[in-house]
Design a protein around this nucleic acid. Structure first.
Lengths: 213, 213
DNA sequence: CGCCGCGTTGAGTTGTATCAACGTTGGTGG
DNA sequence: CCACCAACGTTGATACAACTCAACGCGGCG
């Protein structure tokens, strides 16, 4: 669809710094596929700004959103030199890219990625618990808490995902996600200003539902 | 239960090498809990030999086996300075441990962990697809293929997990896992010599079931 | 032998998927 | 400005896969 991507090389074009690698930076529109599952994995990427989702497909078309990424998160991982997931922007985004070979040369970059990978692996562990052991209502409560940092308590959250995308992330159908939203609203745990504008009313009950996430 | 752990310091006790970190090595019996979810995360660990599973618990006791680890795999990851998962051996195992501070000093170690984290993150992505989108039969087929490397085609696989542990890994109940094994046997895709001895008879059909894993 | 943990199988229940209709919103063009 | 349309969301009725509860089988060990 809207594949508006503009690329520009790193700020230090004059003398290529050995530490600040020759990574370039992409500015990408919302709903743009940045890379495709199975393509040769040449570069590794970091979300600088915006939101990105990683997806995997089964041959018959079933889809799983395997990870939701925000600023600092890393993607473009490879299994057998091919990208393991597709990556699609949820919002307009800025993405930094690095040659894979840069990892060996640039220790600072490698250290940053190591810390990030650890954090993302922990998040994946939590997500496995969600997908493997939680009910639909619990999954949606968990999802909303995950998107709503402690800080912004009373404020309203904008969802940049459709019901189908949320369903594909939580291992549900879009109808079940919709019913779960309605049920949370009915119980007074959340308020839906619009379909994509949510306010959490009762954080305690939500946390109890989500298993003290 | 059987908490037979013997610890010994690294081989270079004389002059402590700056690169080969002061990691110690554990010899651990099967069915031993090596670390507990929530404990302060002081050390990072590598499986040298044997098999280890990482688990997470919900307050009401529901359990998810989030990862299965073999030689080379890394665990002991921290979220907010606490272990994110418990780790339990499935077989007798040898485990190398490193102080977390060693990561900053030892570039070789850091590079190895980075590669491992990338691989383990990819595996977790696949597992999210399994947990979110696959049927019970597909999950069990996927599980068996994952344990049976391409190389050993005709040979027999020893499962070191109970039906309950497999169920907790695949997000199912032990009865459903048992029925799936029976169904795979009925279809002639696998042979069950004993409950924990499996031979894959029809790898093609298994791969088709598991979505060309 | 007889117990105990683990596995299998059956019968009935339930949560989520599926299928289908209807509602809402935002954009476009008459 | 309003009518129309398309995409997204909600809600209801029904179906079905997996869960739950329960009985039974089997193998290893004291």
């Amino acid at each position: 669809m809207r594949q508006i991507i503009e690329e520009r090389t790193g700020s230090y074009s004059r003398r290529p710094q050995p530490v600040e690698t020759q990574g370039s930076s992409l500015r990408v529109a919302a709903h743009t596929t940045v890379l495709h599952e199975g393509d040769p994995a040449r570069r590794i990427m970091e979300v600088v700004d915006g939101a990105v989702m990683l997806t995997k497909l089964l041959p018959d078309g079933r889809r799983q959103v395997v990870e939701l990424l925000g600023p600092g998160d890393v993607f473009g991982l490879a299994h057998a030199d091919a990208y393991a997931c597709s990556a699609e922007t949820l919002t307009p985004a800025t993405i930094a890219t690095h040659e894979r070979s840069a990892l060996e040369r640039d220790a600072v970059l490698a250290a940053r990625l190591l810390r990030r990978f650890e954090a993302q692996l922990c998040v994946m562990h939590s997500h496995a618990l969600v997908l493997g052991r939680m009910s639909a209502l619990e999954r949606v409560a968990f999802f909303l808490l995950r998107l709503m940092p402690e800080s912004m308590v009373g404020s309203t959250l904008h969802l940049s995902m459709t019901r189908q995308e949320i369903a594909d992330f939580l291992g549900l159908t879009l109808e079940t996600v919709s019913r779960a939203f309605s049920e949370l609203k009915r119980r007074g745990f959340v308020a839906l200003l619009r379909a994509d504008e949510v306010r959490i009313q009762d954080r305690g009950s939500m946390r109890r539902l989500a298993g003290a996430a």
